Structures are given as C-alpha cells and as structure tokens.
Simulated scan of single mutants.
Amino acid sequence: MNADRRRGSWLIVAGAVAALVLGIATTVLLAGTGASRHAVPAAWRAPGVRCSAPAMPGTVVDVAVSDMGPGMMGGAPGGYGMRLWARPATVSAGLLSLRVVNTGATVHEVVVLPLPSGQGIGERLTGPDGKVDEAGSLGEASRTCGTGEGHGIAPGAVGWTTLTLRPGRYELVCNLPGHYLAGMYTELVVSR
C-alpha cells in the first residue's frame, strides 16, 4: 500500500512538471513567432469562450476581469474575490484598444476613468448603489462580443473598445454594483 501511494505521488509530480515544461515551451514558441500578438492570452481564456475580438487598431491592452463565482466566499458582491488587471500596464500615448475577456462566472465591464493627481487606485467614493461616479469617463467595454457600451460582458465572452489617451494615469474599473468595492480596478499608465 505504501508503494502505491509513492507511485501515485510520483505520477502527480511528474504530470505537474510535464505541464509546466509544456506551458513554458508553448510560451517561448509563441513569443518567437509573434503568433500571440493579436490573440487573447490563453491563460485568460475561459472555457467555452463564445466570441473573439477582431484585429484592433493601435496598441492593444489585454484586460482580464474575473470572479470566483456565486456561492463562493459568501456569494455576495463583496465576497466574490473579484479581480481586474491589464497587460501591459504602461503604454505610449495615442490610439489604443482595450480587449476585455471575462474569465469569471458573472457579468463584468471596464470603464476608463482619469486618475486625479495624488489619487490612488481603489480610492474613489461609491454611492448607495455600490458604483463610482462615471463623470469624465473616456470610454468603456461593456458589450458582449462587441465594442463600446452595452449591458456587460457575459462570462466566457470578450468585449472591446478603442480610444485615444493622452499621457497620464487612468483607472480601469468594473462599475457594476459592488464590483469596485470588491477590488475590480487597476491602473493604466500612459506615457509620452
């Protein structure tokens, strides 16, 4: 029985190492060929993605929005373990496209807001509806399988928007009720 446990443990370790080596090899191959330049990063794709973004103009920023889904960590908006992050986090000023993939289990969106001097991300006040003030918004991706404003990006789907940004600091937020308070924001720095 002890030998069976050791053999099972060895197989688990061997499988994990093989998956890691395969992942690294695939990343190196794609980076070398440039094949991943216009694709949503594989690690951000949710199973069953129903659509993909077209080729987009300008610098492409991949944005992932995610949550742990209902029923986990309390099942309330503040307890979902929600996240929003962008890659790259620093881009040059000018035309850029945000390609947003929802890897979570609930609907999300991304709104682009300028960050006032001296203000950090996650410091905006929320109203009684659990949302931040969108005054001054420069654009948003909230349409399932489409560009611009809509009713949110469905789980497993992609949404996108293209805009022109000047040098400065911007906060990308999911502004559905309670999502900002749950941690769905990140900074995008636009340099000269």
Rank of each mutant, 00 (worst) to 15 (best):
P77M: 07
D129R: 11
H179Q: 14
V111F: 05
L84T: 06
R87N: 11
L176F: 15
R124S: 08
A105P: 01
S142L: 03
G168Y: 08
M184H: 10
E134P: 04
M184F: 03
P70K: 15
L95P: 04
R169I: 07
L96W: 02
L181R: 14
H151W: 07
A141M: 06
L98Y: 01
H179N: 14
M73H: 13
Y180A: 08
G71F: 05
G71L: 07
V91R: 00
L98D: 03
R169P: 00
A154Q: 15
G81Q: 08
L172E: 08
M82K: 09
T186S: 12
T186N: 11
G78I: 06
P116V: 04
T90M: 08
I121L: 10
C145N: 07
T103P: 00
V173G: 04
T161A: 08
Y180F: 12
V107K: 12
M82C: 05
N102K: 02
P177N: 07
A182K: 05
S137K: 12
D62Y: 09
R87E: 13
G168Q: 11
G139F: 00
E171L: 05
G74P: 08
S191I: 13
R169W: 05
A86V: 11
A76Y: 12
W85R: 14
C174D: 15
P177C: 07
A141E: 09
V111E: 10
L115Y: 00
L95S: 15
T162G: 02
W160L: 09
V101P: 00
M72S: 14
G127W: 01
G127I: 03
S142P: 07
L113M: 15
T103C: 01
L181D: 15
M72L: 15
E109W: 05
A157L: 01
R83D: 14
G120I: 00
M72D: 10
C145Y: 09
L165W: 04
G183W: 04
N175I: 12
D62G: 01
G118K: 10
D129H: 06
L165K: 02
V132I: 13
K131H: 01
V112W: 06
T161N: 04
E140P: 02
E171A: 02
L176N: 10
G94I: 06
P114Q: 05
M72C: 09
A157K: 00
E149F: 10
A89C: 06
T147A: 15
M72T: 15
W160F: 13
E149P: 14
G79I: 03
L96Q: 02
C145E: 02
A154T: 14
R124E: 03
Y170T: 02
G74D: 13
T161K: 00
T162L: 11
E187G: 01
A157Y: 06
V190R: 10
P114D: 04
V100S: 09
